[in-house]
Amino acid sequence: MVSLIVLAAAFIAGALLFTALRKDAEQYLNMNIEKNLFVPVFLVALVIIGVYIAQYVHLTESAGRVSNAQQSVYVYGCIIENQQDCSSLINNMNNNEYSKLQSGSIKQGIFYIPFSLQESIKTNALTYFCLGALLSWISIFIYRLVKK
């Protein structure tokens, strides 16, 4: 279980970096950051796509290491299932493939190493980093509205 200090640090870092760099981002990217609804969309997309990619890449090497002439092993990321449902889904797929391999109907089985995206998101530092940045953006957004 990932410890609270990791998540808290990521959250604080996200909030601080967004607060400090938003003006520079505006200057470098030539876009308004503070009142642009693209920012929360960007942060949410970053969490979903970023965690998926990082987790997928991370497991790819382990999958490659157990692949051989009899089995090709890939990574399968479940988007909506929790870890238990995802494992059970993939176990069924792997068992079916194994049966086919045993019966000789196929020469090489295709197996998967599962991970659940929602579980990964819950425990990944990037989620809390983006949450910190998002809260910072919301605070600035509301502050600007109130000020108006």
Binding site: A10, L29, N30, G50, V51, N124, A125, T127
Partner: peptide, 21 residues
């Protein structure tokens, strides 16, 4: 500028997820 650098920032920030995993 936006088409090049927004994805680049997106890409670099994924590094946090890589370490998180």
């Amino acid at each position: 500028t936006q088409m090049l650098f927004v994805p680049a920032i997106f890409f670099v920030l994924i590094g946090i997820a890589a370490s998180g995993v």
